[in-house]
Write a protein that binds this DNA or RNA. Structure first.
Length: 831
DNA sequence: GAGCACTGC
């Protein structure tokens, strides 16, 4: 049996080590269909006579893009690749694809036109598709459609436009890299520089050499469109002027001038209290002050010379703390706008995160110069329940003077509120970063870039002229970066590397060098190392059978491996829930001012399971058990859960089952069909660092741990080094599912170690037993992964016996049959 | 003792 296995693996590696070029050789050119051409032409003429079409056309004609219609069509027709740039409001996203399609339809060659337009976000893919269908006086599913993960409304195959997320088209290209049948690929919003866009831009460089009849249209904001044109050998570029209303831009100096705000003197509280630390604080302050003046002295001197601001204002700016987030200043500004500014419209305040929103919300609630009843204050954060509410988009109810939205950068691109006329930009945002040298992920607040500031300002000018306050002074501006660091330079690359391998693009490093911005060699090395350690790549960096499965699954590789093991061990249902929750997002919400109640309900739901992972499964199971939508919504309301997140998690589980069935790991797509017992098993990330359990984990309140070990998925440094999700585990699962297994005999004492950092004392007999079982289990798992198929638990074969023995051993650990105790000096990563 | 934002046939 195991000899077959080796042969299989050998054959397998031949399948996946080809080159993408060979696949692309078979790329076919698109053939026309005269019958369809005529039919689509007739239908097009028909829809043009529709009253609604005419009405929509009047609006479309006002868009700047419309005036450049012929230029755009000619540019695309005469070039295989081009860049179209334009600011928000120019209409490029809704019009360019329609120009192309209408041109084909009119020339009676509609059957040869199939446009795919990618969007970075799910919501935009749907809403743009709906808008475009409306403009064409059609329903979705005729000439316009969309596709996002787990949701689609596809248009007719020929003569159509499909709006999809970049991830969807990339996933399709894994099996169809030549984009068979697609005539135009439009990559929209590429200036955002998300990983998917960067990746597809590079991938297309190879594809277009073999698909000469495929047109590639790159669409970006004007600011950095040159970069894309240069990347494609200076391909032609067209700029569409934007259309937004003028937004008056103010800075910190103006905010101080308008409100008369004074910052508290930095050392006051220490002086008052005769604090013994005063001298230390003073030295510290003096140093910061000197540094600040070195940087901004010239600017402040210029201000004095200009006389545009009073000396009082300039003195405020000389305080090195003046650019630090001041809630009092923001409150004063909001009051100033509410009392002094006549123009109706909502106020949008950009803050960095949850606690800032919460604090400002509190201050406004109880401020004596601010009559809360007159205003509608809405916090906006991805984990607050308000994101699912329509209130945010609707005009304030009668009797309410203004809508005031306190938001994170979610309102910068993802959520658009049309009636905003005033923007207050705190000048900072939080950003996730990865440091390969320390293998740390961080989430810290930092200065925004000029591109962010511009985008925030633009949010005030969507319906009429607006006003934007940036809470840093003009002197700061020259020190701000132009653009945010592209996402590909800020993350680990395991999934990107697996994609490179599945697409047969050669050595990972070589391909990554061809990207618009190249990730550091160290990051690539660290990621390849992890994939090798997981046994997803072999020593020559080829996909192993396991790697092949992981590359195809639409989840991060570690979560994919968990899914495969879950199916082999027949405990899929909880594993599917955990995978959906970890890979997508936690469904628990954080309602402002009700966090304690939310925590209590969470604990109640957890029912002492000592696992955030099992808790996510409980939440989803209880949700799935609800019979009616009303029940489901009440359940969510009671436990502060997001209905939409749970629906998506539920659908993800179904999707995972389909994948596992196609890979032959299961035969039935009912997740509970073969679950034998409840036991979970997770990927282990050992580290020698001291870490803290994040407060959102239910284990935080747990006083006594039966076991000193936790497994986790996400570790992120913010105010401290936090583990965000955890499950208490006993030593044996760690030994069986951890890697780098080794045995030791030191001075006659036998022990077992895993992950090079956890060492367990045990008797020699135990060691021999575990070692033999582990060896056999690993063989069997590798075999099952190379030759997927159901494990037949009813048979008596040695393999099944091994699995059953392991499962019994693991689940009965607390019976104390086995002597196993942790070495103290090795348990560094326990919490 | 605490939670930027996205995304996958």
């Amino acid at each position: 049996m195991y000899i077959d296995d080796l042969q299989f693996k050998h054959k397998f590696s031949n399948i996946v080590t080809g080159k993408i070029d060979e696949k692309l050789e078979f790329a076919a050119t698109i053939k026309g269909d005269p019958h369809l051409d005529a039919l689509y032409y007739e239908q097009f003429l028909e829809s043009k006579r529709d009253l609604k079409y005419g009405l929509m056309m009047k609006k479309r004609m006002k868009l700047p893009a419309f005036e450049m219609r012929d230029e755009i069509i000619n540019l695309i027709e005469n070039n295989q690749i081009c860049v179209i740039s334009g600011e928000t409001g120019c209409g490029k996203t809704t019009q360019v694809a329609q120009f192309i399609l209408d041109d084909y339809l009119t020339k009676q060659k509609g059957s040869t036109c199939r446009i795919v337009c990618t969007q970075p976000r799910r919501i935009s893919a749907i809403s743009i598709a709906m808008r475009v269908a409306e403009e064409r006086a059609e329903k979705l599913g005729n000439s316009v459609g969309y596709q996002i993960r787990l949701e689609k409304e596809l248009p007719r195959v020929k003569g159509s436009i499909t709006f999809c997320t970049t991830g969807v088209i990339l996933k399709q290209m894994e099996s169809d890299p030549s984009l068979d049948g697609v005539s135009h690929l439009i990559l929209d919003e590429i200036h955002e520089r998300d990983i998917m866009s960067d990746f597809i831009i590079s991938l297309m460089k190879t594809v277009i050499t073999k698909r000469k009849d495929l047109k590639l249209i790159l669409m970006s904001a004007t600011l950095n469109s040159d970069k894309f044109s240069k990347y494609y050998d200076n391909c032609p570029k067209l700029e569409i002027p934007g259309f937004t209303y003028h937004v008056e831009e103010y800075y910190l100096e103006d905010a101080i001038k308008h409100t008369g705000f004074e910052f508290s003197l930095p050392l006051n509280k220490f002086r008052e209290k005769q604090n013994p630390k005063f001298h230390f604080m003073k030295r510290n302050y003096d140093k910061r002050h000197a540094e600040y003046m070195r940087q901004f002295g010239p600017y402040l001197r210029k201000l004095r010379y200009d006389k545009r601001y009073t000396l009082d204002v300039i003195q405020q700016l000389e305080n090195p703390n003046c650019e630090e987030l001041s809630y009092d200043l923001i409150v004063d500004l909001i009051i100033y706008i509410c009392h002094k500014m006549k123009e109706a419209g909502a106020i949008l305040v950009f803050l960095t995160g949850y606690s800032e929103i919460s604090q400002l919300h509190n201050l406004l609630q109880f401020h004596r110069n601010f009559n809360v009843q007159d205003y509608l204050i809405l916090p906006l954060h991805s984990q607050m329940p308000t994101v699912d509410q329509r209130q945010i988009f609707e005009p304030p109810p009668p009797g309410i003077k203004r809508k005031i939205i306190l938001s994170t950068n979610i309102a910068e691109t993802s959520i658009t509120i049309d009636d905003v006329v005033y923007v207050i930009d705190c000048g900072k945002h939080k950003m996730k970063k990865y440091c390969p040298e320390t293998n740390n992920q961080t989430l810290l607040s930092e200065w925004v870039t000029l591109a962010n500031a511009k985008q925030r300002k633009g949010r005030a000018g969507r319906v009429k002229p607006g006003i934007c306050y940036h809470l840093y002074h003009r002197g700061r501006e020259q020190f701000l970066d132009s653009y945010p660091l592209p996402e590909i330079l800020r993350t680990r690359l395991e999934d990107v590397i697996l994609m490179i391998k599945l697409l047969q693009l050669g050595p990972a490093m070589e391909f990554l060098q061809t990207l618009l911005d190249k990730p550091s060699e160290k990051t690539v090395e660290v990621s390849i190392e992890l994939l090798k350690r997981m046994n997803a790549l072999d020593e020559e960096e080829n996909l192993t059978p396991l790697g092949f499965h992981l590359a195809r699954l639409p989840v991060h590789p570690q979560i994919g491996k968990m899914l495969l093991l879950g199916s082999i061990f027949s405990c899929l249902d909880p594993i599917l829930s955990i995978a959906a929750s970890l890979d997508y997002k936690d469904a628990f919400q954080l309602p402002l001012g009700k966090t304690e109640a939310a925590e209590l309900k969470k604990d109640q739901l957890a029912n002492d399971c000592k696992s955030d992972h099992i808790l996510s499964h409980i939440a989803l199971t209880r949700f799935e058990e609800c019979v009616t939508q009303f029940q489901a919504k009440s359940f969510c309301w009671e436990y502060f859960l997001s209905y939409y997140t749970l629906v998506l998690q539920q659908n993800m589980k179904k999707q995972f089952m389909l994948y596992l069935r196609d890979m032959n790991f299961v035969t039935d797509t009912d997740p509970k069909a073969r679950d034998d017992e409840e036991f979970e098993e997770l990927v282990i990330h050992p580290d020698h660092k001291r870490v803290q359990l994040h407060k959102k984990s239910i284990l935080v309140t747990e006083g006594v741990y039966e076991s000193p070990f936790l497994v986790y998925y996400l570790r992120l440094k913010s105010t401290s080094d936090f583990i965000h999700d955890a499950t208490m585990v006993h030593p044996l699962p760690l030994i069986f599912f951890g890697d780098q297994y080794a045995q030791h005999i030191d001075n006659g004492v036998t022990s077992i170690s895993v992950n090079r950092c956890l060492k367990f004392k045990c008797s020699e007999a135990t060691m021999m037993l575990i070692s033999e079982l582990k060896k056999q289990m690993d063989w069997f798992l590798e075999y099952k992964i190379s030759n997927p198929g159901l494990v037949d638990w009813t048979t008596d074969t040695p393999d099944v016996k091994v699995l059953i023995a392991v499962m019994e051993l693991i689940t009965n650990e607390d019976t104390g049959e086995i002597d196993l105790s942790a070495y103290d000096d090795y348990d560094d990563n326990t919490v």
